[in-house]
Amino acid sequence: MSAAAHGRSAMEPAGIARALDTLGAWVLAILWFLPLIYAVWTAFHPTEYSARFDLAAPLTLKNFADAWSAAPFARYFLNTVLLVTMILAVQLVLVTLAAYAFARFEFFGREVLFALVLVQLMVMPDVLIVENYQTLRRLGLIDTLLGIGLPYMASAFGIFLLRQTFKSIPRELDEAARVEGCGFLKMLWLVYVPLARPVYIAYGLVSISYHWNNFLWPLIVTNSVTTRPLTVGLSIFAAVDQGIDWAIICAATLMTSGPLLIAFLLFQRQFVQSFIRAGIR
């Protein structure tokens, strides 16, 4: 997204058409924002005001405190942070090495192997739940954070993205580094990785938001408090205790999405750019 606010271009409407556009855009935006505003309203007011909109309603943080003490959210937070960090760390290493191999080494079977890697773009771990569960069982990794992360660690998407970037780096840099006596790993670290930094950031943000929000697979793999990530914890919290009221559920919902949401609002431009960069293939 270009930072410079561009002037009005030739085909942009003026007068009434423009006013109608503005009106339409705002109506849709308010409609789109309403569910969130509503969740915020409910979470910060006493239960009696859940469906009653009174500007004089007292603000409260009690719902958050209640939610926090009603379920082990602290542990869920820790699990999610550990999970997301572990997945991203391993992904970055594996993806970098593989992309480097594909981009710069002429080895036997390279094209076939690359095609085999791309298979994962279509056959995603999200669908292979039955067999992957059996594999984890055999490895004794059911109900572990490692088990949740393992199927996602070798990411075809990341390999593809980074290979494109590495390929666009001029080979003259290689030559120069080689003359300086750089080994190929040192070259990767000193030349390729720094030059691909924006792609790493893009990939990292996409990976973090994907795994922070991932639900089905962690739900299948985990069955205890010590491994459940936030999404699974939240769903259990909202579903099991029918007695819990809406205000508390809304508070829990906002709390669990909070860090990612706040990070997004603070670094909106980076997030959006990352998604675009990661999307255009």
């Binding site: 849709l28 789109w32 938001s209 929000n213 939240l234």
Partner: peptide, 12 residues
């Protein structure tokens, strides 16, 4: 306003 819902987990 348009983009924020995207950042929420489906569960939320």
């Amino acid at each position: 306003a348009y983009f924020t819902p995207t950042m929420l987990p489906m569960i939320a």
